[in-house]
């Protein structure tokens, strides 16, 4: 049998899920399929169980934050089919008021810590996750540091005003802080 190509996969996805696929775009050597978040599990499960495609390896998953977008928060998943050596990226975006995703641990056990990382750094909730708690940061931290509104520089320090070098913390007012 001929080796399936990425076009086959995308055509099949288009045929099977049709309107649930919001967009498909190509960036360098990778195709990204944009979907809404309630279809993540069904779509990845379908690709996992598929006889010829067998996308059974979850390469990575991570959170995204585009503060100016209409739907600012998102998850990115990358799956890999080791039999056909095809890779595919999925993205699902959501609004700030609805940060709940379905857990992917039912399909890939490896998603466990990846989702915990996304919870830790972006504050996403994963419905059905077996052990959703912070993983890299301390448990009593009260914010999610990879969101864009959290500056890397300590906003209470005025010796680090380095605007010329692009290191100006957000919400930083030098005049207010100067002694």
């Amino acid at each position: 049998m001929e080796k399936p190509t990425l076009e086959n996969v995308l055509a099949e996805l288009q045929q099977h899920f049709g309107s649930n696929i919001l967009a498909v775009e190509q960036d360098y050597d990778f195709h990204t399929v944009h979907i809404s978040k309630q279809h993540i599990v069904t779509m990845l499960r379908y690709l996992y169980d598929h006889d010829t495609f067998r996308f059974q390896y979850l390469t990575t998953a991570c959170g995204l934050h585009y503060p100016d977008a209409e739907r600012p928060f998102g998850m990115m998943y990358q799956v890999h089919s080791l039999t056909t050596n095809l890779r595919l990226r999925f993205k699902a975006f959501t609004t700030a008021s609805d940060l709940e995703f379905d857990t992917l641990t039912t399909v890939f056990p490896a998603a466990n810590w990846m989702e915990r990382e996304a919870f830790d750094f972006f504050g996403f909730h994963f419905k059905g996750h077996p052990n959703l708690k912070r993983i890299l940061n301390v448990e009593d931290m009260d914010y999610h540091p990879l969101r864009k509104e959290y500056p890397i520089e300590d906003a209470t320090r005025y010796d680090k005003d380095d605007t010329l070098f692009g290191r100006r913390p957000a919400g930083y007012d030098r005049k207010r802080l100067q002694p």
Binding site: T59, T60, C62, L64, M76, P109, W113, M114, G166
Partner: peptide
């Protein structure tokens, strides 16, 4: 995994770290 918005720094950079992923087993 690098997202560039054309600026001087990455907009987002995610490292796929093999240790992190397999240590959960």
């Amino acid at each position: 995994y690098l997202i560039s918005d054309g600026g001087r720094q990455p907009f987002r950079l995610h490292f796929r770290r093999p240790c992190y992923i397999y240590y959960q087993a």
